[in-house]
């Protein structure tokens, strides 16, 4: 028996409308696309206002006047729309960029470089055979892939030693293949979730 809940019908309609693009571009898809953009924009505005209220205005009302600086910087972002005072928007941008880099750079170097190098350089012989194979593949993959990007020494890409960057290229192609396989699985994972919704919640046949 088909659902009688109007919410389910709306969700089912937009699911079918959105996925109809996979077959051919059509007016129903365009309607769904524009509706989604409108709803998403509306939701973004509401959440933006809520954020300003919860994480800015509330603090100012509690007497924490330092938050008024954040408000001032936020307002200055809109200066870019003014012909004469557009340069003022550079101050909040500079603050955002500096803050973002400052917060992430130390941790990025630690997590993406130091810890990764340490993990790659750990003993290749593990307690189990599979662990040893994994460690060897990782080690060979890292060394050969890095060698592929050495462009200042042409000779490394020639002759007998040229096999090393070639292995690196194959290693990267294997990684791209794994990424592609995972991407296909991800997309199907999203699509099948909607198929299950249509069959169970809307048509109620499973």
């Amino acid at each position: 028996m088909v659902s009688v809940d109007p919410q389910i019908w709306i969700a089912a309609f937009f699911t079918i409308a959105a996925t109809s693009y996979a077959f051919r571009d059509n007016v129903v898809f365009k309607f769904a696309e524009n509706t989604f953009i409108g709803v998403a924009a509306g939701h973004t505005i509401v959440m933006g206002v809520k954020n300003i209220r919860d994480y800015g205005w509330t603090h100012i009302m509690q007497g924490e006047m330092i938050y008024s600086v954040a408000f001032l910087l936020g307002i200055l972002l809109y200066a870019r729309f003014h012909r004469d005072y557009y340069w003022l928007y550079r101050y909040p941008i500079a603050f955002l960029v500096g803050n973002g880099i400052g917060i992430s750079i130390r941790a990025a170097i630690h997590s993406d470089f130091i810890v990764q190098v340490a993990a790659t350089a750990s003993p290749l012989i593990k307690s189990d055979a599979l662990g040893t194979v994994n460690a060897l593949i990782t080690f060979v993959g890292v060394v050969t892939s890095i060698s592929h990007f050495i462009f200042t020494q042409e000779k490394i890409h020639e002759g007998a030693i040229g096999i090393v960057p070639k292995i690196g290229r194959w290693m990267m192609l294997l990684a791209f293949g794994a990424s592609f396989g995972n991407t296909v699985m991800s997309r199907f994972g999203m699509y099948q979730g909607r198929i299950i919704f249509l069959l169970r919640e809307w048509l109620q046949i499973i």
Binding site: V115, Q116, A118, A119, T138, N182, S186
Partner: peptide
């Protein structure tokens, strides 16, 4: 994470992070 992100997140798992 999504499956398509796993290959980029897995190095953090392999390194114990």
């Amino acid at each position: 994470c999504l499956s398509m992100m796993t290959t980029s997140i897995k190095p953090y798992y392999d390194s114990g992070q």
